[in-house]
């Protein structure tokens, strides 16, 4: 079997690397999430002195955590599939189906979502929007910015998956 073109391998390596590293960074947000809430619980129940910031901090970290982790999860093949037909198909067929799905299901919607969620963030940024349900009233736009950022990361990883599936469709082998 012919070796895969080096530019293809390099492109995949770079795209996968971005997702891998984003996951390695974002994953650790779990620690401040846990710690700020543990601090809050201690301050509230032991010292009767609740903080104004801990809940908002935790909830904004939580939302950013799972959104920004979506690309890493795609790279790790962690997004569940209904695989009972898929798993019995030949590699070529799997690659073909995946490639078609990425082109039809994945890129158009997420590209449009990138634009719209960027606008969602930008309007919030221009207003200096704050979270009104909180006594702390923190600014909300950095949190809203994670939506377009997460979508961008997903699109990059999706491109890597598309390259892999096209290669699989043509050569009958997963990279």
């Amino acid at each position: 079997m012919a070796t895969p073109p080096p530019t293809l391998l390099k492109a995949i390596r770079i795209l996968d690397g971005v997702s891998l590293w984003s996951g390695k960074i974002v994953g650790w947000l779990i620690l401040p999430m846990v710690l700020s809430l543990v601090y809050e619980v201690g301050a509230r129940y032991l010292f009767n002195a609740p903080t104004v910031w801990a809940y908002d901090m935790t909830f904004m970290l939580y939302g950013s955590f799972f959104m920004l982790g979506a690309a890493y999860t795609l790279y790790r093949k962690g997004h569940i599939r209904t695989d009972f037909f898929y798993m019995n198909w030949s590699v070529r067929r799997q690659g073909l189906v995946d490639a078609v799905c990425y082109v039809l299901f994945f890129f158009p919607g997420l590209t449009a979502f990138l634009v719209v969620s960027w606008d969602f963030f930008w309007v919030s940024f221009e207003r200096g929007e704050r979270i009104v349900t909180s006594p702390w009233m923190p600014i909300v736009y950095p949190f809203k910015a994670t939506m377009p950022l997460a979508t961008l990361l997903l699109l990059l990883q999706g491109f890597s998956e598309l390259l892999k599936s096209v290669y699989a469709a043509l050569r009958g082998e997963w990279l």
């Binding site: 609740p50 009104v132 349900t133 909180s134 006594p135 009233m137």
Partner: peptide, 24 residues
């Protein structure tokens, strides 16, 4: 510990010295 509406109202309770929390 008092559940108050969020925002400026909550700030006023704080200004009075009432420990106000917001929740849905």
């Amino acid at each position: 510990k008092y559940r108050s509406p969020p925002g400026i109202t909550g700030e006023i309770f704080k200004e009075m010295g009432v420990s106000a929390v917001a929740m849905p």
